[in-house]
């Protein structure tokens, strides 16, 4: 279980760094979506099913939808 948690945390940190580095904002949004999704799994491993449910529904679905709409309405590439 600890190994799984370690791999997940590493993936999460890598996604967060990717979200910081991407010039294409759509890619950055998807990377931040992955951060939220992995955070939801970690909440489940930490025995917090209520929070995992909220984070999965909001962090991975609603926030990503809002960001995608916003990127579509503004510029896609960071200059």
């Amino acid at each position: 279980m600890e190994i799984i948690a370690g791999i997940l945390v590493l993936l999460m940190i890598a996604s967060a760094i990717a979200a910081a580095l991407f010039k294409d904002l759509m890619n950055a949004v998807i990377a931040s979506c992955i951060v939220s999704l992995i955070a939801a799994v970690l909440f489940y491993l930490l025995q917090a099913p209520d929070v995992a449910m909220a984070e999965a529904a909001i962090g991975a679905a609603l926030v990503t939808g809002i960001f995608v709409i916003a990127v579509k309405r503004t510029k896609r590439f960071e200059e």
Binding site: A20, L25, A28, V29, S32, S36, L42, F67, E78
Partner: peptide, 19 residues
Amino acid sequence: MKVIIGFSIFDTGIYLFLI
């Protein structure tokens, strides 16, 4: 937009810390 994405990641970190 990048700054707002940063806010979202910052939030997630704080939630993980509290849990």
